[in-house]
Nucleic acid binder design. Structure first.
Lengths: 194, 194
DNA sequence: GTCTATACCGGGATAGAC
DNA sequence: GTCTATCCCGGTATAGAC
């Protein structure tokens, strides 16, 4: 049982929807496009899902879960708080494609729907919370110096990543993302290094 | 001659397009919606503009120019580098609407079109350059301490703002934007304050 | 479960009358 | 300059056959 090509129809439909939502957003993605990408017919899609929104919800939930897992893999690792944050910021990313979850916040119909927005909100909120704990560890250990608020720094870290995608896509090059991240790391760098 | 209600048709069409692009993006905005919002007919729109893309280009250029002017008003002010950056970060914003320019980077058709993407890229690039100069001033004056790169910090500042919009729209509240900005300001704060 | 037919509306644009 | 008519295709969904 391989996972991708020979998967069953619902599975292929969800994966195709994930790709299209990532690339084109919700308003830019049509049921027809999904069906073609999934190699599934009209009838199949509407048999397994209630419609575009229902399918999108399944796809968004899966992307959200995947983002959390990927972040946790890095944030739950070994090392100082700084080291784990650095690992998170420098991890491999498909920068020019943007964040599959964060990009949905710019979609008018996602934001207008409480159901569709919920997993997006919860994911970014979880990430901030997770980072807050790590930053607090670092603060307690005197890694970052200063009178600083863990929750604020966590928000700044998430915002820099999300904004880094914006800069990269505007310029058509991942370099802008990296530059923004390096700036943040320099600001966070243990006092000793400055 | 008032500027808004009684303006001529091209003017009303551009303004309506600016609003819709801001709110719904390019793929989410139809000629029909523009015409209705502008109170202009089909014929009028296609007489004055070559089509949706041509009109969008005019709208994007105007929004880009407006963003630059608004930023320059704050960045070109008086005070230390830190003070001007703080003023920029804390200036009044329609946070939940997002950035009228930056949001376009998440639109597949804007990014796919060299013409539409150019003004977006140029604007964000100008902003980074403008901030780089100011950060460099601050660095020269010893305001920020440390071995830091002006261009990197400038990118981080712009990214934090753009990402702050993402966090705010995800949570449905401007608070997340403010939190991220406060975190950045704390990191930038003159050494003395820490 | 999946297919095809059908429906209705909207997207995006052109043509020619006024 | 603006209006209305017209065009063709795609979006989103339902119905019923297989």
């Amino acid at each position: 049982m391989s996972a991708a090509r020979s998967a069953d129809a619902p599975e292929r439909l969800i994966e195709a929807t994930r790709e299209l939502l990532w690339e084109r957003g919700y308003v830019g993605t049509s049921p027809k496009a999904i069906q073609q990408a999934a190699g599934a017919g009209q009838g199949s899609m509407y048999h397994h899902f209630d419609g575009k929104q229902d399918l999108a919800l399944a796809a968004i939930r899966r992307s959200a879960a995947e983002l959390r897992a990927a972040a946790e893999r890095v944030l739950g690792g070994e090392g100082t708080a700084y080291a784990r944050i650095e690992a998170y910021l420098l991890r491999e990313r498909d920068v020019l494609r943007g964040c599959p979850v964060g990009r949905l916040t710019m979609d008018p119909e996602v934001v207008a729907s409480a159901e569709l927005r919920a997993p997006v909100d919860e994911t970014l909120d979880w990430l901030r919370g997770r980072l807050t704990g790590i930053v607090q560890e670092g603060l307690d250990a005197g890694e970052f110096g200063g009178p600083l608020e863990a929750a604020e720094l966590a928000a700044t870290i998430v915002a820099t990543v999300q904004g880094g995608y914006v800069l990269a896509r505007a310029s058509g090059s991942p370099a802008a993302f990296d530059t923004a991240v390096r700036g943040l790391l320099a600001l966070l760098a243990p006092r000793a290094a400055r």
